[in-house]
């Protein structure tokens, strides 16, 4: 199954792109752009987790924001009670994984549209709990004065923040790409392709669904812990159902099961509008309209456009056929 070659093919381009983005941010970013670079890194992590679940398991999760929120709040609360910030990523991953496990076990037998709605409900429950458990979360006012990794973002430490978040992006990319080429990944795609056939070769579907939700949730939990230690303040609104929907949409826009696509789509649809200092209102509008238009004309996302562009370029520039490049079909001008 050519595991290592496939791993490199999916990991290297995406990781290289991330490294370039991070490097550009390190070299050229002012304080504002550093902030954008950090937040975009967080988005990339969230989208990668979702993309892994949707692409390999073939099921929609609409509660990434919930797992993100749990990772963020738990690590914030522990830090406010004295935990050193460098433990936060581990805490975020653990909290995400545990909550993913719980959700996965609750939804073992639920699939398809039902799973989308149930996870949507779970996401909203988390948001409501963050609002309502006022004794712990301080309700809608949120947590203020959470410790951070390197203090408030400034010219002195922006490089540290960028290295931490984009380093995490690359690690997440590597782990997910490894997982995708492991037997676990193959089993997931077997289940996605045909549940009945997967059962006939001895795979218990529920088990793999629980595992996938756990992985996606752990990734989101990590993003939450990183965000906390940058922002220093949390409010429930940051973890709304709308964010889950946007994460799902960004993953789909990138092209399901394409890590490179997920990175590009997070950059294009989240990073660029922020870089251009477009107001939140227009970001929202543009994202919505682009989403509609993309789904009309390229429902398989940016990676579909990428494949099309490459084949078009081959045809135009090199005279190759649209299919596999093959020496026999090369027409010399």
């Amino acid at each position: 199954m050519n595991g290592s070659r496939r791993f490199l093919a999916s990991f290297l381009p995406a990781a290289a792109l991330c490294a370039v983005v991070a490097l550009a941010a390190l070299l050229f970013a002012d304080a504002y752009l550093a902030q954008v670079a950090f937040l975009t890194g967080i988005t990339v992590i969230l989208v990668l987790g979702e993309s892994f679940a949707v692409g390999n398991m073939g099921q929609l999760l609409m509660c990434q924001a919930g797992f993100y929120g749990i990772g963020a709040y738990v690590s914030a609360l522990l830090e406010m009670h004295g935990m050193p910030p460098y433990l936060a990523p581990a805490v975020g991953i653990t909290c995400g994984a545990v909550s993913g496990l719980v959700v996965g076990l609750a939804a073992t037998r639920i699939r398809g549209h039902y799973l989308a709605i149930v996870t949507l409900a779970i996401g909203v429950i988390v948001e409501e709990l963050l609002n309502n458990l006022q004794g712990i979360t301080n309700g809608p006012i949120g947590l203020v004065g959470v410790p951070t990794f390197f203090g408030p973002l400034n010219a002195g430490n922006q490089a540290d923040y960028i290295v931490v978040v984009w380093g995490a992006v690359i690690v997440v990319l590597g782990c997910l790409a490894l997982l995708r080429e492991s037997r676990f990944g193959w089993f997931l795609r077997a289940i996605r392709d045909s549940e009945a056939a997967a059962e006939s070769i001895g795979l218990r579907i529920g088990t793999y669904q629980v595992a996938t939700v756990t992985v996606a949730a752990a990734v989101a939990g990590l993003a939450g812990a990183l965000y906390t230690n940058y922002a220093g303040l949390l409010v429930p609104d940051l973890f709304s159902y709308g964010l889950s929907a946007q994460i799902l949409a960004t993953a789909v826009l990138g092209g399901i099961n394409s890590f490179g696509g997920a990175v590009v789509s997070s950059l294009v649809f989240n990073g660029v509008p922020q870089m251009a200092q477009v107001t939140a209102f227009y970001q929202y509008l543009i994202f919505g309209v682009v989403l509609i238009v993309m789904m009309q004309f390229a429902p398989r996302g940016l990676s579909q456009i990428g494949v099309y562009a490459v084949s078009l370029a081959r045809r135009r520039l090199l005279g190759w056929g649209a299919g596999q490049p093959n020496a026999a079909t090369v027409r010399r001008p």
């Binding site: 199954m1 193959w186 795609r189 077997a190 392709d193 006939s200």
Partner: peptide, 15 residues
């Protein structure tokens, strides 16, 4: 009911 995204060999290998 083969797994359509996989090659024939991969269908058997995944089993």
């Amino acid at each position: 009911s083969l797994f359509p995204s996989m090659s024939c060999f991969e269908n058997v290998a995944v089993a």
